[in-house]
Amino acid sequence: MHELSIADSILDSVRQEAQKHPGAHVTKVGVRIGALSGVEPEALSFGFSALVKGSDLEPLALEIEAVPRRQRCPACDITFTVTEDNLACPRCANGETLLAGGEELDLAYLEVED
């Protein structure tokens, strides 16, 4: 359970970014969480709410965009989204595909009000 420290890192970044927009009030932060990020969205939301409550950033909403895993087929040179844990290339059925995405743990945006 490291979602609390991930939530804390998100809040640190929000504070840093907010300093660049003096007078604006941050109402929402958007993050992208990859299927292989090792972060559980539900636990992250829970940790986030707990940290925001009573803090200088309250009320601050969190929006999580879940990002699926992607694989690349070296033979066809295509990248595809993995559905139902099937890593085989949809074009040539090659099973030896390479990890190409899904590790995201990114801050996507802030919403601010003046």
Partner: peptide, 13 residues
């Protein structure tokens, strides 16, 4: 309301 894109890693530090 304004939306400011960030494109930064949560664990950038």
């Amino acid at each position: 309301m304004d939306r400011i894109p960030l494109e930064k890693k949560v664990l950038s530090e």
